[in-house]
Design a protein around this nucleic acid. Structure first.
Lengths: 205, 205
DNA sequence: CTTTATCTGTAACATTTGTTACACCCCGAA
DNA sequence: TTCGGGGTGTAACAAATGTTACAGATAAAG
């Protein structure tokens, strides 16, 4: 049960009494699942009836439209709560595909059991509400970028946060554009003197 | 205190004991504010430390980028909770401007008092979590549309939901495009036989 | 070291949307 | 009635992004 230790690291349980958490995780009907890289953990539209706790590995959340165009919305690294904002919604379905980006292990906890925990442990309730709220802030920031900002601005934001570009294809998926468009945006940013590139490191000016 | 009755209609309090709600609203330090059409209730970046309950009027939430391009994210009608997803976030600031679209009355409730209510009343906690979750779903749907769908698809969705187009300028702000672009998209949809227009009513085929 | 696959830069052209401008219509005010 | 304002349709051109193609660079595999 060494995964219990990992899950204690979740911000969700940080302020909570460790023995309470341990007891909760131990007593909960343990639906434990593992996935290998490339497996789909959930599909857009799937019902979302459990709390999914990622305790090992990395997952990608991405959307896809009818023509196959993709957008990687988020990349989550263990330990992390998956899709906390979609469990208790009126229409509790995944709005994204969740795909294992490495070998992954996930603990599924019954929704009712978790509600009970929130009743009993005030700090868990507060932290869970904070988690959901942060997701909403994250989404509205993304919405702002996609609806109002051009590609070059989005790209500058990305570079500022990540400090560089490891893989153009990857970043293009996150920006929601085709790969050559990303390369062009990079060239233009360089031509405009906004950034400088040595190797994969990008410097903002 | 007839606004109390209106607020009882909020889905947030639907399952809750009415006298409890009444008592809560009455006892809470009543920061009551009114705005006239066009007033800004909150600005992008403002701290968000209270629960804002809209009990009269209609507000618009919109974002703006540096060049002045605007996007109307949502239009809320009383009774409604304003920005529930931003009160308890790690960085609790408004990500949108909130503007009075008619004469508005808003009740501000202290964040800590409301937390207390959620502790005491399980149904309020559950409903508040549902509210936030629904906001997150709403935002991820919007993100999907803006990042992955073209204007014509967004427009069809809008027409399907609203059953028509009252005012092109208004809808253009919601779609995040210039007004002539909207008119063009409409023409093209008609030319493609996807919709038919008589007067302001739009029929989907 | 050579081979091979992947990543990168870039060009040419198509599509979508923005911008500006203008003519038309409808409707209410003077 | 005339006038003026707001809403609508549309055209012409500009800017941003998508699509496809290809050539060179780089990294991984043998």
């Amino acid at each position: 049960m060494e995964h219990l230790k990992v899950l204690q690291e979740l911000s969700l349980f940080k302020k909570c009494n460790p023995t309470t958490v341990e007891k909760f995780l131990a007593e909960t009907p343990n639906s434990l699942r593992t996935y290998k890289k490339g497996d789909f953990i959930a599909l857009q539209g799937d019902p979302c009836r459990s709390l999914y706790l990622l305790y090992k590995g990395r997952v990608k959340a991405h959307m896809e439209n009818d023509e196959g165009k993709q957008l990687v919305v988020d990349i989550l690294e263990a330990p992390e709560i998956l899709a906390p904002a979609f469990i208790f919604g009126t229409n509790n379905r995944f709005p994204v595909n969740v795909e294992a980006d490495t070998h992954c292990s996930i603990l599924c906890i019954d929704r009712q059991r978790f509600l009970q925990l929130m009743h009993d442990e005030v700090s868990v309730m507060e932290d869970f509400i904070r988690e959901i709220s942060d997701r909403a802030v994250f989404l509205s920031k993304k919405l702002n970028e996609f609806a109002l900002q051009g590609l070059k601005v989005r790209l500058l934001n990305y570079i500022q946060i990540h400090g560089g570009i490891r893989n153009q294809q990857e970043v293009a998926s996150i920006m929601g554009v085709a790969r050559p468009s990303l390369a062009r945006a990079l060239s233009e940013l360089i031509a405009e003197g906004k950034i400088r590139m040595n190797d994969k490191k990008v410097e903002i000016l």
